[in-house]
Design a protein around this nucleic acid. Structure first.
Length: 355
DNA sequence: AGTTCCCGCCAGACA
DNA sequence: TGTCTGGCGGGAACT
C-alpha cells in the first residue's frame, strides 16, 4: 500500500513535470561527453557520474554498457570505468567487422574478440552489450545503407548460420524481437548521439531509420566548419546523394555531422579508414549490390541494368555480387533471403518472386 | 493509432 | 545480507 501511494505520488509528479527530452539518452550523451571526453584514461565513478549528470543509476548503467561494448569505456573495478576516447573506435570496428555476423563475443576488454563456445541462452543473447555489437556489425558487415530498428531486431535474432532454424527463428522472433526492439532504440540513440550512426525520420513509413557514419562522424565533428563548404559542394554534385536526400524526411533529427562518407557502404568506409588513412574520396567510392538504381554500378553492365527486375530467381543465379566472396556476408544475405521468403509464405501468404 | 523510449521492478550475481 | 547488475515490460510521450 505504501509502495502504491509512493508510486502514485511519483506518477503524478512525472505527469506534471516530465519531459522526455530532458531525460533522453541524447542529452545524457552530450552531458557525458562534456564531462569526460577530455583526457583519455580519466576514471569515472558511477555514483559521482550520476550526481554530476543528474541521471538515474539504472539509466547510466545502460549507457555505460553500450559505450563499454564498443570499447569507449573499460570497467576497471566495481563502479569504476576508464574513458578510452574515440581513438579506439577504428580498432573496435575492425574487430567487429572481422568477426562477421551471428557470433557472440566476450567483452572487448579481452582485446582480441574471442568467440563464446556453444549457444548462449536467450537472456544472455538479449543483453545490451551483445545487441550493441551485433547492431554495429549489421552496418559493418552488410551493404545495407539504411536500417530500421525492427529490421535489425529480426535480422539479428539468433545466429544466421543454420538455415534449418530459420522457420523456428521467424516464429520465435515475433515474440523475441518485441523485447529486442526496446533495447535497440536505446542503443541506436546512444550511437546516434555519438555521431556513429545517423538518425533519420521517414514520414512515409512513420519510422526512424539509421545510416552508418562511423569513425568520421566523430573525427569530422572537430573540423566540420572547415569542411562545410567543400562537403556541401561535393554532396550536391554527387549523384549518389540523390538517394541520401530521398531519405531525409526530417532534417531536425539528423545528426550535425553531414560527412562526405555518406552513401559509402560502412564496410568499405572501415576498410579505407583503417588501411589507407586517407580522406574521403567520393570518386573512388564503389557501390555494393544495393546501390540506388540511378547510380552507375561497379560491375559489368548486364541486360537488367536500369530495367525493372522481374525474375529474382534467375537474377540470383546469374548475378554474383561482391559480398559472395565473404562468408559472413553470404550468411547474412542467406538469412535475409530466408526471412523474406518466410515472411511472404507465412504472413503475406504469397510467393516473394511474384509481384 | 502506432511508434518511441523512460522508468522501475525484480531476480541473479557478487562481496 | 546488502549492494550491484541487467533483463524485461508497462505505459507515457511523441509523431
Amino acid at each position: 500500500m505504501a509502495q502504491l501511494s509512493a508510486n502514485s505520488t511519483q506518477f503524478n509528479f512525472r505527469k506534471l513535470t516530465y519531459c522526455r527530452k530532458e531525460k533522453s539518452f541524447d542529452l545524457l550523451c552530450s552531458n557525458f561527453l562534456n564531462l569526460y571526453d577530455q583526457d583519455r584514461g580519466e576514471m569515472i565513478e558511477t555514483h559521482d557520474a550520476c550526481a554530476r549528470l543528474g541521471v538515474d543509476k539504472r539509466r547510466l548503467r545502460d549507457f555505460i554498457v553500450i559505450l563499454e561494448s564498443i570499447g569507449l569505456l573499460k570497467k576497471e573495478r566495481k563502479n569504476h570505468y576508464s574513458w578510452k576516447g574515440f581513438g579506439v573506435l577504428p580498432k573496435t570496428f575492425q574487430l567487429l567487422q572481422r568477426g562477421g555476423l551471428g557470433e557472440s563475443y566476450t567483452r572487448l576488454e579481452d582485446d582480441e574478440v574471442s568467440q563464446v563456445g556453444g549457444k548462449l541462452d536467450n537472456r544472455k543473447e538479449n543483453c545490451i552489450e551483445l545487441l550493441t555489437q551485433k547492431f554495429v556489425k549489421l552496418f559493418l558487415c552488410s551493404e545495407l545503407e539504411l536500417i530500421s530498428i525492427d529490421e535489425a531486431a529480426i535480422l539479428l535474432n539468433g545466429d544466421a548460420q543454420d538455415p534449418s532454424l530459420i522457420q523456428t527463428k521467424m516464429f520465435f522472433s515475433i515474440y523475441d524481437s518485441a523485447a529486442k526492439v526496446k533495447r535497440f532504440y536505446d542503443i541506436a540513440n546512444v550511437l546516434s548521439s555519438m555521431n556513429i550512426i545517423q538518425k533519420t525520420y521517414q514520414p512515409e513509413t512513420k519510422r526512424f531509420v539509421f545510416r552508418w557514419i562511423g569513425i568520421r562522424g566523430q573525427a569530422e565533428m572537430a573540423t566540420i566548419n572547415d569542411l562545410a563548404l567543400k562537403t556541401k559542394r561535393t554532396i550536391e554534385n554527387e549523384p549518389t546523394n540523390n538517394g541520401v536526400k530521398r531519405h531525409m524526411g526530417d532534417h531536425s533529427v539528423v545528426a550535425p555531422s553531414q560527412t562526405p562518407c555518406e552513401g559509402r557502404s560502412p564496410k568499405k568506409v572501415v576498410e579505407n579508414d583503417l588501411e589507407k588513412g586517407s580522406g574521403p574520396d567520393m570518386k573512388k567510392h564503389r557501390f555494393g549490390p544495393f546501390a540506388p538504381t540511378t547510380v552507375p554500378q561497379d560491375k559489368p553492365q548486364g541486360k537488367n541494368n536500369g530495367t525493372q527486375i522481374q525474375d529474382w530467381e534467375s537474377l540470383a543465379s546469374t548475378q554474383r555480387p561482391q559480398y559472395h566472396q565473404h562468408q559472413a556476408l553470404r550468411d547474412l544475405f542467406s538469412h535475409y533471403v530466408g526471412a523474406w521468403n518466410n515472411y511472404h509464405s507465412e504472413v503475406a501468404g504469397k510467393d516473394p518472386a511474384q509481384p
